[in-house]
Each structure stands twice: as C-alpha cells, then as structure tokens.
Nucleic acid binder design. Structure first.
Ligand SMILES: [Mn+2]
Ligand SMILES: [Mn+2]
Ligand SMILES: [Zn+2]
Ligand SMILES: [Zn+2]
Lengths: 148, 148
DNA sequence: TATTAAATGAGAATAATTTTCAATTAATCC
DNA sequence: GGATTAATTGAAAATTATTCTCATTTAATA
C-alpha cells in the first residue's frame, strides 16, 4: 500500500532528508504534515498531540529530536512569543520571515526581507561581522482585529 | 549611609519603578547593576550568580520575577540564541536592536532600525496589522573573528 | 528477504520555571 | 527617627520543559 498522493512539503522534506542520508520515518513525515496543515504556530505539545492523533503513541523525545533536526535542516523555523513561549512553523528553506498574531498565534510568512536594503556596514563597528538576522513581525491577524 | 554615586541606568530604573508604584529593592537594583556592567548577554543563572556575589543569598525566584517585570517595563530585553537559550540585556526603553556574537554572546546595540523604510503595507495582507517587530542580528564580534 | 545503521519509545534524569506562604523590607506618614 | 502597611522576598515544593539512556524497532539497501 503506497500513498498515491504526497504534498509538496512532504516530498521536499523527504528530499532534504535523503540528501543528508537521514531516514524519512513515519514520525518525521507526520511532523511535516501537522506543521504544514497548520495556520498557526504550534508548540511542541501541540505537535506531539497532532502526531499522536495520526500515529498513535509517539515518544515526546522523538518530537524534540525531530524539531531540532528540522531546524538545522531549514525545514522548520522556531519563533518566539512575547510571553516567552515558542512556536514552530514549516518553512521551505528559502529566506522567509513571519508575521505572528499575538492573539491567536496565527502565522503568515512573506519573502520580502524587511532589512533588504539596510546597510549593515553602518553597524559593523569594532569589526563585528553580521552573518545572519532574525526578524519577526508581531501584530493581529484580520480575524483578531475584528474580534477585538 | 547613602550611596554618593548612582549610574544613569540605576536612576532610570528607579524612576520607572517609582512611576509604577513599584519598590526599588536592593535585589532589583542589583539586577540592573549586573546587567548594565555586562558586555555580553547574561543568562538567568549568570544574573543570579552576579546578584548573589553582590548581596549574598538571593532567591532564584526573585530573579525570574524581576526579569519578567523589567521586560514588561522595557528595562531589559530578552534575546534568543540559535541554540535555543536566552540572554538578557539592559535596555533603556528606547527602540534599539542588538547584534549578538554567537561565539562569546557579546552584544552591541544600535538604534538604526534595519526595517526602517520597509513598507509594511505590502505585507499586511488579509487585514493583518503589524504592531511591533523583533529584529536581532547574529554574527561574530571583532575578537571572535580574530580568534577564529 | 536479509542486513544493518539509524531511529524510536519509555522512562529516568536534568534543567527551567512557577507557586505558595511565612518572614522581611521599602515607602509613607507622623 | 519610629510605627504602619502593602509590596516583596526566600525557601522549598510543585510544575513544566528538555535531555539522556538503552533495549527494541524500522527504513534503506542490496
Ligand atoms: Mn526564545
Ligand atoms: Mn526596529
Ligand atoms: Zn489572530
Ligand atoms: Zn564574540
């Protein structure tokens, strides 16, 4: 019994995993599925819950291991909430940024980089070399604006 | 015995606290002191250690309480490391951003906003309202560039 | 289908954070 | 300076989050 359908995100993940000699386990693919289906950022617990719904019992450690690995592979992005918590979003490797709704944790990504034409040189004092940046926008999504 | 000297950060903190009807306790002022003396981001544990060096035994819960409160008051900023950890930096309420050295956790702040002239409208689809942004630059500080 | 290195699950072990409550203290008023 | 009082602290317990270990399972490969 082979699956006759496979979403883009799933095949992308499998490809990345194969390239690195890593296995495409059911658990890992379930994490991809849960994440790419979600409109909002998911916590570790929510992802674990989702995977358990799909597969039955699944070790929480596996979820931790998978998410850390996916983050290294650029498959997921870990975002930060003002309250200190974290949420995960699927992210296909490209350089994208995220808008996060602080009310419902909804997330939308966009590829335009807000720091696009910022002159890093102006800020690289004392020899500091900027290698990367992390940008996250906060606000309210359409629904939560109305509801407010 | 009154202190005959008080740094700007300390008086700033005391002012903010008074305005909100909060007490300027020795512990809170020690946290301000530790933070503004530091060239690098400090973890909760490091802050706790520093405060203990200054005051003798101090409850860890107080450090947590203080940092959370300071963050709400805009007195400190909590930054995120790629490895998942967090570091705190003193921050005087103004809108600043931080460059973080991933090697030594050194931090430099700058006021120019990388997203200065970004057109948020272009990204405010489906009624999303951007209220705030979080930007953090990663790289290596001068010393760590040389050492590498 | 057999082989095998990689991955998982269960639970123990750590680490991080929050809660509770009696004791202490900073601010205020005399 | 001393009394008053609400805010704050410390200590320990309670939660919650994360990592580790190791015996068992499984995906990939031939
Ligand atoms: Mn974080
Ligand atoms: Mn800015
Ligand atoms: Zn929302
Ligand atoms: Zn450095």
């Amino acid at each position: 019994m082979t699956k006759d359908f496979e979403c883009m995100q799933e095949s992308y993940a499998k490809e990345v995993l194969r390239e690195k000699g890593l296995k495409s386990t059911t658990q890992r693919l379930a994490v991809v599925h849960i994440l790419h289906m979600s409109e909002k950022l998911l916590s570790i617990g929510e992802i674990h819950g989702g995977v358990k719904d799909m597969l039955g019992n699944t070790g929480l450690a596996t979820i931790y291991r998978t998410l850390e690995m996916f983050e290294d592979l650029g498959i997921v992005k870990r975002l930060h909430f003002p309250d200190g918590g974290h949420g995960y979003a699927f992210s296909q490797g490209e350089h994208v940024h995220h808008m996060v709704c602080v009310d419902c944790r909804g997330v939308f990504d966009f590829s335009e980089c807000p720091a696009e034409n910022f002159d890093y040189a102006s800020v690289e004092k004392q020899g500091f070399r900027v290698k990367d940046h992390f940008i996250q926008l906060f606000g309210q999504c359409g629904k939560c604006v109305e509801a407010a």
